[in-house]
């Protein structure tokens, strides 16, 4: 499954398109991590736990979007965009969407 955030894939031709597919996740770290992040906030620096959390959430969201595209019969997703929301406090909410297409 090819993913791009461009209009088309260089060197390939889009033969069919299916509409917008998307993947979303809401994911939280355990309380211990939250407390450690709170301490880290005093000194500054990278919050490793949260970097990891965002990475995991993004991976999961992309996986879900790919699964949707596969169900439609697509082999690529172009014009991929990321978005976030904020429902739950202390949770990463990632939303990824793009246009499912078939390329050859």
């Amino acid at each position: 499954m090819l993913l791009t955030n461009t209009e088309e894939i260089p060197g390939k031709r889009i033969t069919a398109f299916y509409g917008v597919v998307s993947g979303s996740t809401v994911r939280a770290k355990h309380a211990g991590r939250d407390i450690m992040a709170g301490f880290k906030n005093i000194f500054g620096g990278e919050l490793k736990g949260y970097t990891e959390l965002l990475q995991e959430s993004r991976d999961e969201a992309i996986k879900r979007m790919k699964a949707q595209a596969r169900q439609l019969g697509a082999n690529a997703v172009v014009n991929v965009r990321f978005s976030t929301s904020s429902v739950a406090a202390g949770a990463a909410e990632i939303y990824v969407y793009g246009t499912a297409v078939t390329v050859e």
Binding site: A28, H30, A31, D34, S85, V87, A88, A91, E93
Partner: peptide, 20 residues
């Protein structure tokens, strides 16, 4: 349920349908 999930970490499944 989401509050409980926040303690343990992991996918907050109860909010998935909401955002979907």
């Amino acid at each position: 349920l989401a509050g409980l999930r926040n303690i343990f970490g992991g996918n907050v499944q109860s909010y998935e349908t909401l955002v979907d």
